[in-house]
Computed example of a mutant assay.
Amino acid sequence: MALIFSDTEYSAHYQKYMLPASEKMVQMMLSYLITKKGKPFELAVDVGCGTGRYTRPVAPHFEKVIGLDISESQLNKARRSTSEKNVLYHTSPAEEMPLKDASVDLVFAGLAAHWFIIDKFMQEAARVLKPGGCLALHAFIPIFEIQYQDVSETLTAIITETMNVLFKYRDKTSDVMNNQYRELFEAVPFADKQSYANIFMGRWKEAYNWAHGPFGANLVLWKRYIDDVLCVWRASEEDLVKFKDYLNTNN
């Protein structure tokens, strides 16, 4: 785990500013699970749950949901933010889940699996999943595009070149994400598996094309993929919160 996740101040900012889970992503997981296993949905486990960003939205669909993380700082935020009675949080590494064999319907990890020891995690996921249970791993990759007057193409080329240079010094976890989880997909120990890449959230793109509205002038860079938004904002924090509320209302 990156040391930053154990920092209380970081966890507070993560909880405050990280955008909530994508309902489309949740529905994709549920649709796959119902096709492969069917109901009832008894137990889901969010591995590397952080502050519970995906734990809570999954809760209405299962009898019980467990969030696991090794960061007490993240889990403390998750517990304080969770009102769902069927959600529990435990301190646990992804590679040693405190769960019985063949007891889980869905094991999932949103923006977390690249931190795991992959082979050990896959073995553990296979151990705890029920026959027909599903494993879902998802994240996002940054694709840089700047929209600004008549110099959008030039600015996009500059930031892309800059990021390509910086990426040479990134760690292995960044490589896993940038490769769109291909390494993780290949490590999944099940014959029946599917991979989805470049799943773009079209209606969020429309929110950017709505740039003539009250927020558009403040957006310098914008990309929305299945898990998060990447944007550069040049106005007040108060206006950013209003813009986030608009997006969450129009997901």
Rank of each mutant, 00 (worst) to 15 (best):
G48E: 08
C49F: 03
C49I: 07
G50I: 09
T51L: 00
R53F: 03
Y54G: 07
Y54M: 12
Y54T: 08
T55H: 07
R56Y: 00
P60D: 11
P60F: 14
V65F: 04
V65T: 05
G67D: 02
D69H: 10
I70H: 05
I70G: 04
S71G: 15
S71V: 13
E72H: 06
E72S: 12
S73H: 11
L75D: 12
L75E: 08
N76R: 14
K77S: 14
A78D: 10
R79H: 13
R80Q: 15
S81G: 15
S81H: 14
S81A: 15
S83Y: 10
K85N: 11
N86P: 02
N86I: 14
N86W: 11
N86Q: 12
V87D: 06
L88N: 05
T91C: 10
E95D: 11
E95Y: 08
E95A: 05
M97D: 00
M97G: 12
P98R: 01
P98K: 08
K100I: 10
D101R: 05
A102S: 11
V104S: 09
V104E: 00
D105A: 09
D105V: 03
F108A: 04
A109Y: 00
G110H: 02
G110S: 13
L111G: 01
A112I: 03
H114T: 12
W115T: 03
F116S: 02
F116H: 01
I117T: 15
F121V: 00
M122Y: 03
Q123D: 15
A125N: 00
A125T: 00
A125K: 07
R127E: 01
R127A: 09
V128L: 12
L129H: 03
L129F: 04
P131G: 07
G132N: 04
C134T: 07
F140E: 01
F140Q: 08
